[in-house]
Nucleic acid binder design. Sequence first.
DNA 1: ATGAAGGCGATGTGATCACAAAATGCGGTT
DNA 2: AACCGCATTTTGTGATCACATCGCCTTCAT
Lengths: 215, 215
Amino acid sequence: MLINTRPDPSPSAHDRTYRGLRTRIMHGEIEPGFSLTLRGIGKEFGVSMTPAREAVRRLVAEGALSLSSSGRVATPDLSNERIEELAALRSLIEVELASRALPRAHMALIDRLQAINGTISSMVENHDSVGYIRTNLEFHRTLYLRAQAPAMLAMAETVWLQLGPTMRKLYGKMRRNEAPHFHRHIIAALKAGDEPGLRLAVRSDVTQGLRMLTT
Amino acid sequence: MLINTRPDPSPSAHDRTYRGLRTRIMHGEIEPGFSLTLRGIGKEFGVSMTPAREAVRRLVAEGALSLSSSGRVATPDLSNERIEELAALRSLIEVELASRALPRAHMALIDRLQAINGTISSMVENHDSVGYIRTNLEFHRTLYLRAQAPAMLAMAETVWLQLGPTMRKLYGKMRRNEAPHFHRHIIAALKAGDEPGLRLAVRSDVTQGLRMLTT
DNA sequence: ATGAAGGCGATGTGATCACAAAATGCGGTT
DNA sequence: AACCGCATTTTGTGATCACATCGCCTTCAT
């Protein structure tokens, strides 16, 4: 063995661009309605227009970006009806994922979830909204990974992506010092092996935040 | 008024390519594992490699095509676990869509569903498997459109797309003359305004076909 | 006859270019 | 001072090209 200790030796340019944009959108670093240009994206990631276009097309296909009639690309400004739909989808899919993860949830997983929950609290104290969103998603993803259902998890992440820019607005108007309330219910239900309780806790956690956006 | 009676004056080249490939995949016209080339796609749709690449990237993002490590693109050959996941997703989302469509389902809609059901029967008689899949999806889409939930419908169509090539195999080994059995249950539940019955009928209809694939 | 090695063709990737359409800003008019 | 029209600039689209890589097939040696 000689060189190349990196796991992925050469991520293609369009993939780097895609991933970069994706995390920025999912973590709510871009406000809804913000408009992007292909040349700007290319310049930012040091690539030409071609990979930038491919990354944008991919994100448009996933609903993370919206394409105006003239081809202009921007982060979507969601209507209340669409937010309600996406919240319902989160609830449907994530409750199922949690339910499937429950029989496989050992103590080590619960410990990790509690540690992540602690990080979320510190994010709240530091008023770091992007960090809050990122760590909150990490909490959910850590749980759902145990479900061993990659297609469902991908679906859930697609919904997160669509809600990303809107999340920013949500946690902007959220009252501070509000720790992740229902996360404790989720952990308690996991410990007790209480499936109905887990379903209710996940549904509540997913629904609570989005509800204050549609009013 | 002079020219241009078409509703869409100039669908972009990549969009025509995308739509063409999409319907062929969703309707099961391509067998699982079939491999495609960008130049071949471009030649088929009369465009250059650039729009073909964009269409392919979009379809890969939706899970309709899979990308090998070397960048080769092919229709995915789904594992049994993935088929089970996608069937569960269909069940979750489509039951919700049907439930939301129920209060808006008037007699005209039920008549149209019955007409589509008749077309499905004729497709079965003619041994037209592609026509069967297409008309079957039309049945579901017609119902779900009444739910007025575009994000959910898009999600459901993404799942259909992923199952498209696999559907071909299913209806190949399905015994002929088997009319759409649970569709009658769906229509009956719609007429009666029976929500639990509707949920059960949709879940059964979605699950029955996929079950014989995973065995 | 069989297996390996080398070469040739096919294929994906990314950059660049020409072009059309849209947006922006400037200047003139009322 | 406000508004309309035109020109300039910006931006997306699609085609083409150069290049690296992968696969396949031929060919040669054992």
